[in-house]
C-alpha cells in the first residue's frame, strides 16, 4: 500500500508555508474498511496528510537530509466529514523553528471551506543514534517528490525556484545506471 496522503503540492514557500491537495476517492480501500456503510475519510489520515505536507516543508530546509518525523499533535479539531468526491487542501504554516524541530499550524479545507485545524510538532532526528538511520531510499524519495510536483511549485521567499538537491539527483542517476 502506498503511504502517500497528499496528491500534489499547490504552493510551497521555503521555510514558511505549504499547501497541498488531496482528492478523496471511493477507489481508496481505507474508506470502505473504515466505515463500510457510509464511507468517509478518517481524521487520522488527514493529520497524516498535514504531517506529510509540513514534514516535507521542514525537510526541504536541509535539502531533505534531516530525518523529520511528526513528534506530537498538540491539538486537533474537525468540524466536518470528508466523503468520496470531496477535495481537501492541507495548509501548513511554521509558527516556530529550532534546529531540533518546528511547531506548525495546520488547516484543512474541504471544497474551499474550513474543515479543521491541527497543531503539529515536528522533530528533526539529529543525534548520533540516528546517523545510520535512513527513513527513505533517496531515489524513491525523489520519485515521490516529483510525483507530488513539489519542484514545479516550490519557491524561495524571493520567488526563486527550488532546485532538486544534487545528492538526490546523484542517487537517482546511480539507481538508473545500476
Amino acid at each position: 500500500m502506498r503511504w502517500f496522503w497528499i496528491d500534489r503540492f499547490e504552493e510551497f514557500v521555503c521555510g514558511q508555508s505549504a499547501r497541498t491537495v488531496k482528492n478523496v476517492s471511493l477507489g481508496e480501500e481505507h474508506l470502505d474498511s473504515y466505515n463500510q456503510t457510509w464511507p468517509y475519510m478518517p481524521a487520522s489520515l488527514m493529520v497524516e496528510g498535514l504531517a506529510q505536507t509540513g514534514g516535507l516543508l521542514l525537510g526541504q530546509l536541509s535539502d531533505f537530509k534531516a530525518r523529520v518525523v511528526l513528534a506530537k499533535v498538540a491539538r486537533a479539531s474537525f468540524d466536518k466529514l470528508a466523503r468520496p468526491g470531496d477535495r481537501l487542501n492541507y495548509e501548513v504554516k511554521f509558527l516556530s523553528q529550532q534546529t531540533d524541530g518546528a511547531i506548525a499550524e495546520g488547516k484543512i479545507l474541504i471544497n474551499d471551506q474550513p474543515l479543521g485545524t491541527v497543531e503539529l510538532v515536528f522533530a528533526s532526528l539529529t543525534g548520533p543514534e540516528f546517523e545510520k538511520v535512513e527513513l527513505f531510499q533517496p531515489h524513491e524519495f525523489l520519485r515521490m517528490l516529483r510525483s507530488m510536483r513539489l519542484f514545479e511549485v516550490g519557491r524561495y521567499p524571493n520567488g526563486a525556484p527550488i532546485a532538486i538537491p544534487e545528492h538526490l539527483l546523484a542517487a537517482e542517476q546511480a539507481f538508473l545506471d545500476a
Binding site: S96, Q98, T99, I103, V121
Partner: peptide
C-alpha cells in the same frame, strides 16, 4: 524531550520573549 520544543514556543508566545536553543 520533544515537549520542550513545544513548551519553549508557548512561553515565547505567552511572554513575548525569545529563547535560544
Amino acid at each position: 524531550s520533544i515537549d520542550f520544543l513545544d513548551i519553549v514556543y508557548r512561553l515565547e508566545k505567552a511572554f513575548g520573549i525569545s529563547i535560544s536553543r
